[in-house]
């Protein structure tokens, strides 16, 4: 999502000029430890993913990933500094070493993974382009949208996805393109369009903006794959592993039933060997990652397991009220699956 051609061009230029120097293995961890904080690239404001709370503290799903990495490295989730980045700036910021980790609802695609000098550490949210419609239309599936007027947010791949979807289903539509999400929400409300389309995670945020959110419904169809994930600079495998396993620890902890409330208790007397290994009660798997033994305990204690993070930021505990769907554990109807710690 939010693929920007010019970024590609810039990065190509950079590569040709040989300025996108790659870090040596281990350099990032040392540098991070030396400066005492993780520099984390986040969005310039996206409901549920990264936004500033009243006190000026950042919160959101993307923010919590960075906090987890800081908890693993320093044992303190607060040792993070944030760089709010626009969609166009984000890759340069990672490449040039301005940030240590990019956690900015970025879709994992082949061109970004292979061509932009970065490595995605996993998926934090399985998203996709969806539709928000007025209940009055009586539509229950996207297949019934033939002839609809659709409000689309400009500058994202949404336009392409919608066009592909309608063409492959032999349906017609009239697009109205908007630059900002506020405008498209107002437009839907005023009836200028029948349908509002965007990433499904953002449709829930758009819905709250409407005067009567209950009159609108997000259709079940998702017409594109948008796996959102954080990324680190390519070339530093050690830092890559730390970031990757910080995320896996959160996902794995949920599967094993470890929560921020019971993690210390479970670390002391873990009966399940998987839990014992994850929490460092058995073996010392943090050592391989160059992390302290109780790295996962710190993450879960201070940030929470994936389920807690999800519910707090975008799920039922938040204003957005997004259902888990694909983002549930593999044994619970979703596709989240963390490799084991052992």
């Amino acid at each position: 999502m939010k693929m920007v051609k010019s970024t590609l061009a810039i990065l190509t230029t950079a590569a040709v000029l040989g300025v996108s120097g790659f870090a040596h293995a281990g350099a990032t961890l040392d540098a991070v430890k030396k400066k005492g904080f993780v520099q984390c690239g986040i969005s310039d404001g996206l409901p549920g993913f990264s936004y500033a709370e009243a006190g000026g503290k950042y919160a959101g799903l993307d923010v919590d990933v960075c906090r987890a990495v800081a908890a693993a490295v320093f044992g303190d989730a607060e040792k993070v500094r944030y760089s709010p980045l626009t969609a166009k700036e984000r890759f340069t910021a990672l490449q040039s070493g301005e940030i240590d980790i990019l956690s900015r609802n970025t879709t994992w695609t082949s061109s970004r993974d292979a061509g932009m000098g970065m490595n995605f550490i996993g998926v934090t949210y399985y998203d996709g382009v969806g539709f928000l419609v007025n209940k009055k239309l009586g539509v229950s599936s996207a297949k019934e949208l033939d002839g609809a007027t659709i409000c689309i947010q400009a500058g994202t791949t949404t336009e392409l996805n919608v066009s592909d979807y309608f063409r492959s289903n032999g349906m017609k539509y009239t697009p109205i393109t908007y630059d900002r999400s506020d405008e498209s929400a107002k437009s839907l409300e005023a009836g200028r369009c029948d349908v509002l389309t965007s990433d499904q995670s953002q449709l829930y945020a758009q819905r709250i903006k409407l005067a009567n959110p209950d009159d609108y419904v997000v259709l079940p169809e998702v017409i594109s794959k948008e796996p959102l994930g954080p990324a680190v600079r390519r070339g530093d495998d050690e830092w890559f592993a730390i970031a990757k396993w910080s995320l896996f620890a959160m996902i794995g902890a949920e599967e094993l039933g470890v929560t921020s409330a019971n993690v210390e208790e479970m670390a002391k007397n873990a009966k399940n060997p998987d839990v014992a290994r994850l929490l460092g009660a058995e073996g010392n798997f943090g050592n391989d990652l160059k992390l302290p033994k109780d790295w996962a305990v710190k993450i879960v204690k201070q940030v929470g397991n994936y389920g807690e993070v999800f519910e707090r930021n975008v799920g039922m505990g938040s204003a957005l009220k997004i259902k888990r769907g694909l983002n549930a554990q593999w044994n619970n109807g979703g596709i989240l699956y963390a490799p084991p710690v052992r």
Binding site: G45, Y51, A52, L85, A205
Partner: peptide, 20 residues
Amino acid sequence: GLFDLLNSLHQATVDPVWLG
């Protein structure tokens, strides 16, 4: 990505508590 007055306003409107 600097938070001047206008961007601070925008930033506050994306807090889920104050959406819209």
